[in-house]
């Protein structure tokens, strides 16, 4: 019985010490989680802003103007060819335009 009590006493002591450490670890981790959550919130907000900025930069009326400055324009009918002819390009031994 005495042996059991002594074992329990040491067990209680070691758990208390462990708990003491655990307590500090938990507080630290909690603080860390909060920091990370704040960072995630900031990142989410940044993503929203960047998404909106990308939307603004990619708006077709802007791209249209820029493309026309480069001499580009809507596709013309003669610019299209059938998929079969394009796939034949690969199989022809000396395909034109290579």
């Amino acid at each position: 019985m005495r042996l059991l009590n002594i074992a329990a006493f040491f067990f209680a002591l070691s758990s208390a010490l462990l708990l003491y450490g655990l307590n500090y670890d938990t507080r630290r981790l909690e603080a860390e989680v909060q920091t990370k959550e704040r960072l995630a919130d900031d990142a989410r907000s940044d993503i929203a802003v960047l998404k909106a900025e990308r939307g603004t930069l990619a708006r077709p009326d802007r791209i249209d103007g820029l493309a026309r400055q480069l001499g580009l324009g809507p596709p013309k009918t003669d610019q299209f060819d059938s998929g079969r002819e394009v796939s034949e390009l690969d199989t022809r031994p000396a395909a034109k335009g290579r």
Binding site: N5, A12, S15, N23
Partner: peptide, 29 residues
């Protein structure tokens, strides 16, 4: 004296359990 020691040990373990529970419950800052 055995009872006293058991009581102290029980109180110590109860303290550990309570503290563990306190740690386990998430806090809402």
């Amino acid at each position: 004296s055995e009872r006293a020691v058991s009581g102290v040990l029980f109180a110590a373990f109860a303290g550990v359990v309570i503290q563990l529970l306190v740690l386990a419950v998430p806090r809402h800052p």
